[in-house]
Measured scan of single mutants.
Amino acid sequence: FSITQFVRNLGLEHLMDIFEREQITLRVLVEMGHKELKEIGINAYGHREKLIKGVERLI
């Protein structure tokens, strides 16, 4: 299971460039909250919320 699959499953594949540029893996994403996601350029609250909720389902 990769970050690419995870992001695609959430319908947020347009954010993949950010994850690749910042070298974010699923392991790193698990540790990130709204503040960190915003810092790397994910400005939409809804997108950040989707990512965080998606990660919570993985754990």
Rank of each mutant, 00 (worst) to 15 (best):
E56P: 04
S2F: 09
Y45D: 06
E13R: 07
Q5T: 12
R8W: 08
L10K: 01
R21P: 04
I59P: 07
L26V: 07
I18T: 06
Y45K: 10
Y45S: 07
I40P: 00
H47V: 15
N9F: 11
G33T: 07
R8D: 04
V55W: 06
H47M: 12
K35E: 11
T25R: 04
F19V: 04
H34D: 05
Q5S: 11
N43T: 14
V7C: 11
K35L: 07
L26F: 12
L29M: 06
E22S: 09
I59R: 10
K38E: 14
V28S: 12
V30E: 08
F1M: 14
L12Q: 01
R21M: 06
G41S: 03
L37S: 00
E36S: 05
K35G: 06
E20C: 09
L26W: 14
I18A: 04
Q23P: 05
I24K: 01
V7G: 00
R8A: 11
G33L: 04
L37A: 01
S2H: 09
I42P: 02
K35D: 11
G11P: 00
R48D: 03
L26D: 01
V30T: 12
L51N: 01
R8K: 14
K50R: 12
I59N: 10
L51T: 00
R57M: 13
L51E: 00
R57W: 12
I18E: 01
H34V: 03
F1H: 09
E56F: 08
E31T: 15
L29G: 01
V30C: 13
A44Y: 14
L58D: 02
I42N: 03
E22G: 07
I18M: 05
I3K: 00
T25V: 05
G41T: 03
R21D: 05
T25H: 05
I3H: 01
R27D: 11
H34P: 03
E31N: 15
V30M: 15
I18V: 08
N9M: 14
I18K: 05
E36D: 08
T25P: 05
L51C: 04
F6S: 00
G11T: 03
E49D: 10
L58H: 07
L26A: 04
R27A: 12
E36V: 04
K38G: 06
S2N: 13
L12E: 01
G54E: 08
R27F: 09
H47L: 09
R21N: 07
L37Q: 02
E13I: 10
K53G: 06
V28Q: 15
I59V: 11
Q23T: 07
N43K: 14
D17H: 15
F6W: 07
I52V: 06
Q23N: 14
K35C: 07
G33I: 04
L58I: 09
G33A: 04
I3N: 00
H14T: 10
Q5P: 04
N9S: 15
T4P: 07
I40K: 05
E22P: 03
I3M: 13
E22M: 07
T25I: 04
E36C: 05
Q5G: 08
K53R: 13
R57Q: 13
L12V: 03
V30Q: 12
E49H: 10
